[in-house]
Nucleic acid binder design. Structure first.
Lengths: 227, 227
DNA sequence: CGCCGCTAGATTGTTGACAATTTGCCCGGA
DNA sequence: TCCGGGCAAATTGTCAACAATCTAGCGGCG
């Protein structure tokens, strides 16, 4: 039965448009990001199509889209696999993040509203609390929100789009990093420095703080990759 | 010769793999970049498929790929159009370029081989000659090669990939810019400064020169957009 | 005379079947 | 035993037809 009745289907894909393709994309993306499908694993079109209740054509379109996002690798006539990012690639990606996030931080420092600055300060307080409570998961969460907020304030939609793509490729590494004991406390000062630079409306300080933070992330990535 | 089938398609699409899709992508991309199809123009699947001698499925896959590259805009159930980049968007894109090209310039200054430096100097000489000959087309060409070479030397494959995408969206604007009288002479100094910084292996100078150059490009974009 | 619903055309989204390519395996021979 | 040809299964690439959706023009009604 190709038509799942209104009550049926999954509990997702709410929006209309290209239902099958959109559903396939979001489901696959989620599966990759959460690790439900392992990196390097083959993605056989027919099998996945069956599992997601879409046709091969729709799933193929989804694979093409995810390939552009860097989450999937496709080689002609051989098939698609979940992309594996080596430590070196992760470092290179983070270097690009450094350049782009610094740009966002500068712009954020230049034209943030008072309300937005309050939000940043609030996040800073939350980060502090998470460290003293030794809650790495919540810390990682607040961390993500910090970066996201800085981007939002910057208003650099192009840079934000690029950053979102880059970050999606690193979720696994970042997750591992966040769980390393001591890491949150290590990065807290760097995060606070970024917030400080922006709230003081000092673009240069925000730039330097962002770069310092991501340099530290690169060191941590390298250290984690060596094991 | 790969395998010219007796039926004889067109005189192109030489490589194997996904012949139809690849052919459609390259043909469409070329058409968009050269302006054969105007920005904002609707891209009707059936019509294009017929023109390129591929089926709608293949062409649709190509459209999805080009959408990810930012060359095409697709809205569900309404169709695809050639993406138009406003002046503001062009500026935002160039700001991202600034961040990423500066990164490449720094890396290039840090680890370029002597041979690569010779190549840069050779390009510098060519730029000078084009200005004194007042040949804006050749200048633009050499300009492109300069940026491409810097990226190549940097070895930052991730940044290069992003930059290629960003640049593809700007070809039209850059082309218009290059034809403005006086513009080549204006940017010559900036380009030479970039080359100088890299050949002197001075990352900081390369960084500053690259940013100065792209700031100038942004000014020129704004000026051109106001008319 | 102007506005609303409606039908018809055009266009996109989806489907299942067909063709081409790759890969692993089996079998015969040295 | 080891090697190579070639067959067969699996998988991807392509195709043409079908269904859903949107757009525009037209006639009826207030």
């Amino acid at each position: 039965m190709p038509r799942p009745q209104p009550g049926g289907r999954r509990a997702d894909s709410p929006q209309a448009g290209e239902p099958a393709r959109a559903h396939a994309i979001s489901a696959l993306r989620r599966a990759i990001l959460t690790g439900d499908v392992a990196p390097g694993q083959r993605l056989v079109e027919e099998e996945l199509a069956g599992r997601l209740h879409v046709t091969r054509a729709s799933l193929r379109a989804a694979l093409i889209g995810l390939t552009a996002d860097g989450l999937v690798e496709r080689v002609p006539n051989k098939g698609a696999r979940v992309r594996v990012v080596s430590t070196e690639e992760a470092v290179a990606i983070t270097e690009c993040r450094m350049a782009l996030e610094a740009l966002c931080a500068v712009k954020a420092a230049e034209h943030a509203t008072g309300k937005q600055l309050d939000h940043l300060r609030e996040i800073g307080g939350r980060l502090r609390r998470c460290v003293s409570d030794e809650d790495p998961l919540k810390y990682s969460e607040a961390n993500q929100e910090l970066h996201r907020t800085v981007r939002l304030i910057s208003g650099q939609t192009v840079a934000v789009t690029l950053l979102d793509r880059l970050n999606a490729q690193l979720v696994r590494q970042q997750f591992q990093l966040a769980l390393r004991p001591g890491r949150p406390g290590e990065s807290l000062g760097e995060h606070l420095a970024i917030i400080d630079g922006i709230t003081r409306r000092d673009p240069d300080a925000a730039d330097k703080a962002t770069r310092a933070h991501l340099s530290s992330v690169i060191s941590a990535l390298r250290a984690a990759g060596r094991r």
